[in-house]
C-alpha cells in the first residue's frame, strides 16, 4: 500500500566461501527465496552486483547464465519439480540432455546417480509412483548429476515428514562433505541450526549472520 517502493532485498552484502554450508532463515516474505534465486541466477537484482567464482555474473547474457546454471548450480525445491511424464531416470538425465552430453556417457552417469541415491529399483517409475522421499532423492540426483559447485535447496524437507526429511538432509550434507557449497533456505529453526553458518533475514535485510565453531 502507499507509494513507498517495496524491496524484496535491501542492502544485502553477503560473501559465501566455496565449500561452505549455509542456512538462510526467516519468515515468509523476508526475502530469503529472492536471495536464493539471485544466487541461482534465476532472478536478477535491479541494482547491485553478484560474483560467482570471482567473476561478475550480473551483466552476463541469458545464454551464459543458463550455462552457469547448468554447470555450476544445482537446485532442490520443496515441491521437487519433477516432470510427471518422465521416469526417475529420465528426470535425472535432463541436465545432461540440456548440456548436450553424448548418450553413451549419459547412460552410465545416470546409472551411477541412481545407485548413489539408492534409486536403481525405481529407475523406470514415474514420479507419481514414488514416495516423497524418493522423489526428493530423484530431485537431488538431478541437481548433482552435473557435479555443480553449489547446491541451492529451497525448503528441501518442507513436503516431507520428519524422518524422511532428516534422511534427505543427510544426503545433502553428504554432498557438502564432498566439497560442494550447500545453501539451504528454510524457516525450520532446527534444520537451519544444522548448518555451519546461519543467516537470519527479515524484510529483505540480513539481521543475523553467525557461524558455528563446531566446523
Amino acid at each position: 500500500m502507499g507509494d513507498q517502493a517495496v524491496y524484496a532485498l535491501n542492502d544485502v552484502d553477503l560473501y559465501i566461501p566455496s565449500g561452505e554450508y549455509v542456512s538462510i532463515m526467516g519468515p515468509s516474505g523476508s526475502g530469503k527465496s529472492t536471495l536464493l534465486n539471485i544466487i541461482g541466477l534465476l532472478d536478477k537484482p535491479d541494482s547491485g552486483t553478484y560474483e560467482l567464482d570471482g567473476r561478475l555474473i550480473t551483466d552476463w547474457s541469458d545464454i551464459e547464465q543458463a550455462q552457469i546454471r547448468r554447470e555450476k548450480i544445482g537446485f532442490v525445491f520443496q515441491s521437487f519439480h519433477l516432470i510427471p511424464r518422465l521416469t526417475a531416470a529420465e528426470n535425472i538425465e535432463l541436465p545432461l540432455i540440456l548440456s548436450g552430453v553424448p548418450v553413451a556417457q549419459r547412460q552410465s552417469r545416470v546409472n551411477n546417480a541412481l545407485q548413489a541415491f539408492e534409486l536403481s529399483a525405481r529407475a523406470h517409475h514415474r514420479p507419481a509412483e514414488l514416495s516423497g522421499g524418493q522423489r526428493q532423492r530423484v530431485a537431488i540426483a538431478r541437481a548433482t548429476i552435473m557435479q555443480p559447485s553449489v547446491i541451492l535447496a529451497d525448503e528441501p524437507t518442507g513436503n516431507l515428514d520428519h524422518q524422511i526429511g532428516a534422511e534427505v538432509m543427510a544426503l545433502l550434507e553428504n554432498l557438502h562433505h564432498g566439497g560442494t557449497t550447500l545453501i539451504v533456505v528454510t524457516h525450520d529453526r532446527e534444520l537451519g541450526a544444522r548448518a555451519h553458518r546461519q543467516i537470519g533475514m527479515r524484510d529483505g535485510r540480513i539481521l543475523t549472520d553467525h557461524s558455528n565453531d563446531a566446523h
Binding site: 541461482g40 534465476l42 543458463a66 554447470e71 537446485f75 516432470i83 540440456l98 548440456s99 541437481a143
Partner: peptide
C-alpha cells in the same frame, strides 16, 4: 508452466 520454470532452473536457455 512449472515444468518450463524447472527447465530454466536446470540450465535450459530460452532458445532450448
Amino acid at each position: 508452466t512449472a515444468e518450463i520454470g524447472l527447465l530454466k532452473a536446470i540450465g535450459a536457455t530460452s532458445m532450448d
